[in-house]
Design a protein around this nucleic acid. Structure first.
Lengths: 171, 171
DNA sequence: TCTGAAATGTTTATGAC
DNA sequence: GTCATAAACATTTCAGA
């Protein structure tokens, strides 16, 4: 397979200037990528050509990254979501590289960040149930040494969006 | 506007039975929603009609939720991402309702979960910089009383995907 | 069930204003 | 920037194996 990697381009992205119409287009597309050009054009009050040109430019500028389908975790039987706080004693490059690889190759890791402060990493992990989380956890700590782990179990998803707040033009 | 809400249907979703072809289709669509029926059909080794029927059924069954465009936070100038751990002393219904509303109406809150354990809530907040986070924080605590807040600043996004792990058929 | 094709709609690109 | 147009391509429906 042509590796449709989840962690895209390490391009140093720098903020792009957008006008009101660009922002409107982006905010529509963020909510629903199936909207046709006609519908978008109508909603932003322009005709197809300029809207299409703007979308193409936004794609080229890297503002628009990709289009994805969002699935329902419950329908897939993924009823448990954990946030995992990790402290490590190891800070050498080799350890970090192995840890990163371990995270990237595990599909139940939906998100992973390196943090500032006394907690070193946070993960979001989506699994079937607590048992599946434990399997994940055991497998992870057997692969890389970790000093301290706290798992926070989500009881209820209050909000979850892929839509970013699009800053307004005043800057 | 027809309220393209980010928090979709409170349908109690129950796990759906999928075969190998369904899983392949879903995993392709999760990575790239722009794939044409032809391309998907080719990759799963079937022709268009059955693939199209399966996709329709997966949509009806609620496995497929929506199609969205993913934007680049850096390109939008949203360079700061915080995970916010919240403890509250208030546990009455009215407080919870106001808190939820406050979160849902703030676009910088990308994700919010109610947790089990001594931390009550976790938020993911995407903003321009630390100053913008502070504005968000001040505004939130002025709207609802919160006992204790810890903000974890992300230094590096190691992994971020919208793709869920699709469980295999053995169950 | 599937395959293959026809009808319909969308996207993408051009050229004129 | 708009509008109209057209070819290429995608989606959707449907007849027949």
């Amino acid at each position: 397979m042509a590796e449709p990697d989840t962690h895209t381009a390490p391009i140093e992205q720098t903020a792009v200037r957008l006008d009101e119409v660009d922002r409107k287009i982006l905010s529509l597309l963020q909510e629903d990528a199936t909207l046709s050009l006609d519908q978008i054009a109508e909603q932003v009050g322009a005709s197809k050509t300029p809207v299409w040109n703007r979308i193409r430019k936004l794609r080229e500028a890297g503002v628009i990254r990709r289009q994805v389908t969002i699935l329902d975790p419950d329908a897939l039987g993924l009823e448990a979501c954990f946030f995992v706080l990790i402290r490590t004693s190891e800070h050498d490059k080799d350890w970090a590289a192995r840890f990163l690889r371990a995270l990237r190759e595990r599909p139940e890791v939906i998100e992973a960040h390196r943090l500032a402060g006394d907690i070193d990493y946070i993960l979001k992990v989506q699994v079937k149930n607590a048992r599946a989380y434990d399997r994940f956890y055991q497998s992870l700590i057997s692969e890389v040494k970790i000093h301290n782990v706290t798992a926070l179990l989500s009881m209820e998803e209050i909000k979850a969006t892929t839509a970013l707040p699009i800053p307004d033009g005043t800057r």
